[in-house]
Every structure is written in C-alpha cells, then in structure tokens.
Design a protein around this nucleic acid. Structure first.
Lengths: 103, 103
DNA sequence: ACAATAAGTCAAAAAATTATGACTACTAAA
DNA sequence: TTTAGTAGTCATAATTTTTTGACTTATTGT
C-alpha cells in the first residue's frame, strides 16, 4: 500500500524502502520458515502462535507481490497452495541472519 | 516502547526484534547520516525533509536507548549535543548497505 | 447437487505509529 | 536577570497497521 505520508515526504533512503518489504509482525518469521520448506497457509496458521488468517494472508500477499515468495497452486482433492522462496527471497536470508547475529 | 501485542504474542523471531531497532520512518536515514559525521538535532531537522522535531527526538532517543547512537553533551555558549554512531551502530551499516543492494 | 477441506475476502474495531502546535529547560554572555 | 540559541517535552489529533468475526471461493469425491 502506498500511504499518504509516503507520497508527501517522498522517501529517499533506499534501505528504508527495503526494510519495509520485510518489516511487519510476521514477515521475517515467514521468510525464515520458507528457507526450510515450501509454506502452506494452514500450516503457518498453526505454527505462528498469536497469528490469524488475515495476518497470514496479508503477509503472504505482500511477500508475493514484492517478489520474495512465489505462489504455486496445486489442484488436488482439497485445494493446496504452496509458497516458495524466490531467488530474491533467498538473497535476503543471510542479511536477516546478520541482523540476528548483531542483536 | 513495549506494546500490548508484543506481551501477548511473545515474540520469537530474533531478526524481527532487530529489525524493529532500525525500522521506522527516520531511523535508517539517521544511521546512514551518522556514518559520515556526528549528528546534531537542528541539523537533522534541516536535512530530513518532511520531518519534525518530535520525529527526530523520538528516533534519536530510541537509537540511543538501543545502543546504536551515543549522546554527547557539549556545554558551550548555545548548548550543543552530538550523536555518535556506536560500535554496534557501525556494525549495522554494512547490513543496511546490503539491503539497499538487494532492493 | 452436496459435503468436506483448504484458502482465502470483507468491513469494522482496536492498537500502534506518526504528525501538529504550544510550551519548557539549559547554557553563556551582556 | 534577561536574552538568544539549541534541544528538547507534552497532550492531542491524524494516519496506518493489526486484529476480530462473519462470510466466500475453489477443488474433488460421493
């Protein structure tokens, strides 16, 4: 979402823009989990304690829109959808790891 | 600030915690500027277009509290206060740089 | 056509973040 | 002791983000 504030103040810091792509309550954790295996909506819902469908849906949508996750629909008995970490998504992982190491 | 949400959901992702330290509208930019020279309140206010004293004050305070900036009071004719990037603050710079490179 | 399961959407409320305007504190010099 | 300059604080308002609960779509097997 492009906010009114953003339009008015005309972002200039590139790092800030990038940080927004992984910021938010659930996105870093989701990316971390995606390293290990493709993600499923319901599985995330179970795994991420304190989350809810809307939070998960919003996070997955944003991560997909910004090209960090790829959505794959599997037309099976009960509809399955998997989210894979993209190449760009993978490139973020070591950066997140460094952040952890510093903190 | 420790929020109600944080207390309830008991954060578990370490990267998320670290991201919070540099997230926000002005913190990344302030850190970047601090690499070049010690920062002054009024100077930041002039430099960061679209900012205001409260935003700057809050950002500097948080960056100081989390140990990324160090505050130095210079008792001179008109009171001067400088903010220096700490060792830990410096260690974040390459990470921010990497984020820029990816984005 | 209907049921069961997975994956969502939508509108509204609650909470957090950011912005605004008025006011305060400290220092040194006159 | 008043003044000028720098660095803020405080309460409140506006905006954005996150949460909540009810509802919808898609698929396949029966």
């Amino acid at each position: 979402m492009t906010t009114k504030k953003e339009v008015e103040s005309e972002q200039t810091c590139p790092a800030q823009a990038m940080l927004k792509l992984v910021a938010g309550k659930w996105k870093p954790e989701i990316l971390r989990l995606a390293v290990e295996q493709p993600l499923r909506f319901s599985s995330l819902l179970r795994t991420l304690k304190g989350s809810n469908k809307q939070a998960i849906a919003a996070a997955l949508k944003e991560l997909e829109e910004t090209g960090l996750l790829e959505k794959v629909v599997i037309k099976q008995k009960p509809l399955h959808i998997e989210y894979y970490l993209t190449k760009q998504g993978h490139s973020l992982i070591p950066v997140l790891q460094q952040l952890e190491d510093i903190g």
